[in-house]
Nucleic acid binder design. Sequence first.
RNA 1: GGGCGAAUAGCUCAGCUGGUUCAGAGCGCCUGCCUUACACGCAGGAAGUCGGGGGUUCGAAUCCCUCUUCGCCCACCA
Length: 890
Amino acid sequence: MPDFALPPQYDPSSVEKRLYGRWLDAGIFTAHVDSPKKPYVIVIPPPNVTAVLHMGHGLNDTLQDALIRFERMRGREALWLPGTDHAGIATQNVVEKLLAQEGKTRFDLGRDAFVQRVAAFVSETGTTILEQLKTIGCSCDWSRTRYTLSPELSRAVREVFVRLWEEGLIYRGHRVIHWCPRCLTALSDEEAEFQETNGHLYYIHYRLADGSGQVTVATTRPETLFGDTAIVVNPEDPRGAPYVGKKASLPLTGIEIPILADESVDKEFGTGFVKVTPAHDANDFEVGMRHGLAMPLIMTEDGRMGDVGKREAGSGKRVPPELEGVDRFEARKKVVKMLEAAGQLAKVESHQHAVRRCYRCDSIVEPRLSDQWFVKMKPLAEPALDAFRTGEVRFVPERWETTYTQWLEGIRDWNISRQLWWGHRIPVFTCTACQHQWADRVDPTACPKCGGPVTQDPDVLDTWFSSWLWPFSTLGWPDDTPDLRHFYPGHTLVTAPEIIFFWVARMIMVGIHVMKRAPFGTVYLHGTVRDTKHRKMSKSLGNGIDPLDVVRLYGADALRWTAVAGVSLGSDLILDNEDLEATFAPGRNFANKLWNIGRFILSQLPDQVPAIASVDRSTLTLADRWILSRCQTTIEAATRANEQYRLDEAAKLCYEFVWGDLADWYVETVKPRLAAVPAAYAVLGYCFDMALRLLHPVVPFITEELWQKLPGRKAGELLAAAAWPAPSPAMRDAAADTAFGRVQELITAIRSIRAEYRIAPKTKLGAVLTSRDPKDYEAESDTICRLAGLEAFSVGAAPNGVGAHAVLRDGGDVFVGLGGSIDVTQECKRLTTDRDRLDKQLAGLSAKLANESFVARAPAEVVAREREKEQAWRAQVAALNDKLKALGCA
RNA sequence: GGGCGAAUAGCUCAGCUGGUUCAGAGCGCCUGCCUUACACGCAGGAAGUCGGGGGUUCGAAUCCCUCUUCGCCCACCA
């Protein structure tokens, strides 16, 4: 009995930290520019500096790590570049909330102090998530960790801004933008997310100024009526004809506004009359521009009613005093009441429509007329579309291509200015003397034109304005660094489809614009992590799973296993947060299985295991040849699957090989031979080594731990830096596949009989096999005896004694002697069931073959195959009928 | 309003170019086993009219059409 030094259960917590340290010490995650190897580069989607690891990262980063480890083992100079994003709004919000607990606002601190406060906060929390990535095994090149707000990357941001400015691609726009009244900043179109909302449609009477009647408008936002500067009606609409050209007076204030014709009005919706609030609705703004309307702002920046549009013609006293300072939604209720009291509220209908919300704080966005900096996107979008069309960039899975192209085709200019304090200050300067305005790479001290004093734009840039540079700003651009030359462009971008617009498309656009090459060739888009009700996992829903809990309870490999094997290409990962056991046990159990195969092997193998190449193939048994063949099939299929980003499939193939073939069958067959036969050592050692290599990208810890213990390891050798298995086609052996398959079938059939007749496991039986081709069975007769619990196994004619039968696929028959214990009725029933099932299948098959069209039209090989099958089944049925007759069954 | 995806065993999902028993895996369930690598295990089972309907084809879970249900993305109908 072997004396195992290792415990029967794998304990991840005792090895993970140590192994990660070894990898770091060996420096194998560090990429080198002077390496002769071909580079392979992934840049991490930088998590927010304030983020803590959640399952979304768990999925995203595990996939990246599996890819990078696969390519590293395949001999590429693999660079996985990590880092964090300063996340303008999100981070500012976090610190503002902390300040609020002290009863302060950022305005109490002032800009400089606030920015310092955020920076201090970030310096404390900013590396948390990167440290957490290490606990799940991420093999990032930590020597190249970057941060979007670092001095180096800030320089890249500024350089790009100035270049775009110089190229005329940045301009100041005066229009209605999305405004978050809580964050007090403008947002881009992408940052203002649509959400279906149940609201109301209010019908309001606007009396004509001449007292001759009234028109009724329908609106979802009655509180904005104070900013109305016109009513419009479709010129084709006969209902409008009597009114166009007249004036209406605003309810509650009596301000007179014109009734105009405008084609943008949908005749079918509402009453056909539309109130126009140019400063608080993007559509109305367009109408206002067409008709030269005044555009008064009637809300403060924080969303309360008030006259603030001083620079606009027509501004002035518009909001009634009793509404001054009232929140917009409160004001809505009040206005409705006031209208009702004035007899000007016709009716209220419930109405479902989409409202935009701030993607960071979920507040309802207020459309607001404002001056902002924009990037002209059309010139950038065209080359990005070309990059897709020429195949320079491709998407996996392909279905995201249309999302990408459609967005680019309809691209709109990008509002990049944010009225925040946390971020890259916009490098636009204005001379207070001569009004000259320019963008500058360095802070100027005086106006270059007149020498006058200079002020800088107070706003900061959209966070994504630094993110979109990530693939090259991280490599040292704008300097022409060795890193940049060697590692740009990268290869694979792994991310979620949610940020195709925010990030992926923009990286491609600016990458081509600045670097002349798209930043990566493949965009690999994975799904979203959801709970069993298919709701996105989120902190606010409380349905999340903490990856660190999983690591603690089941090990990092178990987490990774579920992330990789639990989801097919591009589909969502559904996890049960209420049943962690069901969710993560498979990975843990598999790791434990590996552990125990390893334990067994280590207890058996000598210190010197012969290399598989040195083994004379003629000394191999059928089982040897079979497992080697299976090993090769797995190597080839898993490699192909990984190349096609089918990481789940590769993982499952390896799982099947290890558990289903190696453990369940080969290890069992080889046990009695191990002590004596060197070839058995070689085969077992080789297959296990290959399995560990194949599985390493997915479950790096357990595989490294076991690989280290295998005999013949040189000091300092690491699986993480070892070579990916090369296929050895000579080991493929179709004959062995078939022959061993027969052995398995026979053993399973006998076991099945044992179970059916409730034969105690310890009871040894005798069995006789009749087969057309018995030699494969004879070669493994020892295996058959041990695995099927036989004391004797022979090939020959079945005896006439009492026993149970099983018919094999080739029409062969196995007779299992059960002594006097056989229940003939039961045996008849068993065999009859089998016979009937086969008979039915056979009838179907025969009908198929009798069908002339099938024989004529199906490919010859298919027909031939079906014929063979028919013959085999016929033989099986005949054999079964013989047995039934011999037993005297009805 | 447009686009995309999903629907297969009780649950979570594979099933790629239609054809090898193709109807599978894991979890759960049932039966028997602590067989000297592993009970996080071993062996043997039960379990699905592949969402409905139509079509193409010698042949459909797989391709086409349509309907139903669910989910996501995009969209200025106030």
